[in-house]
Design a protein around this nucleic acid. Structure first.
Ligand code: FES
Ligand code: FES
Lengths: 146, 146
DNA sequence: CGGATAAAAGACAGGTTTGTCTTTTTATAA
DNA sequence: TTATAAAAAGACAAACCTGTCTTTTATCCG
């Protein structure tokens, strides 16, 4: 009932880059992993997925690093789950029955239907820009602490 | 965002035993695993956890098997998550921060606080007996279908 | 008691996720 | 062009979850 570690790293990494990019054009993996207290090489892989997923940019070499582009701030949490491979349960049963449907519902179906929709809604309607704004100004503290 | 397989097996196993025990004093693992179409030996381990967790009883040997006791029907889904080791997020952060608290919230805290409480509520207020009642009479179908 | 039955326990294997380290590729500046 | 810096890519290991099989332990019945 919790996101994967990868998702957490991805979100926090993305937020950190977005925050830094308000004042600096690039951030390096080294800095990100230290500030977030996240395993460096693993974070590298997650960030790579973000770049490949089209929600972040990167540049190799000197003066390189990660930086945002147009789409970054409008990236929703739902898109992020797709990128990090988190199984999200819209259309799938919380009990892992073959599929979630009202005709042949699992014993939990009624109880969780509403919550699933609401949850789905939050993920689809919240984007990186929203989180960045809402959590200012002690925002760094909120993503840096494990 | 979904329960573990173990949790699903545990719940369905528990429900099956509870259902059968309305007419028969014991059920064997063999029958349960076949009816639920669940891997037999793995289910055995899950059932063992239920017994150790004090929400089910078992007896070895001839005429043995699994059966319910007083506490079985009042077992909540929240208790089940504890038994199967599912990380549930009440008091813990969806992003896996050390702990979820309002003073130093993660970037998602605000957005998910309400949903977490609601979800928690469903799990804590739903017990095996409830599910058994609500899903009668085509209840077997609902738990047997994978 | 002795044989049969069923859960409990233990050993092991495959897959996925997470984590670490090394090598390769790309870009920059001098 | 060369040295350097940084991400990308690849190889590998540890931990966890799931699944299978074998051995042990408890119980019942004759
Ligand atoms: S059938 Fe299980 S949640 Fe809908
Ligand atoms: S601190 Fe993350 S959900 Fe509360």
């Amino acid at each position: 009932m919790v996101f994967s570690k990868s998702f957490g790293y991805a979100l926090r990494g993305l937020l950190y880059v977005a925050m830094i990019n308000e004042t600096s054009p690039r951030v390096q993996l080294d800095e990100i992993s230290k500030k977030l207290a996240v395993p460096r090489y693993f974070l590298g892989k997650v960030m790579k997925k973000l770049v490949k997923g089209g929600v972040l940019k990167s540049k190799k070499g000197p003066y390189g690093g990660f930086y945002i582009h147009e789409k970054t701030l409008s990236t929703t949490l739902l898109q992020l789950t797709a990128i990090t491979g988190d199984t999200i349960m819209y259309g799938s049963c919380v009990l892992r029955f073959r599929k979630c449907n009202a005709e042949n519902p699992c014993p939990l179906h009624r109880q969780v239907e509403f919550l699933k929709n609401e949850w789905q809604n939050v993920l689809a309607s919240t984007n990186i820009g929203d989180l960045l704004k809402k959590n200012h100004p002690d925002f760094l503290k909120s993503i840096a602490v494990i």
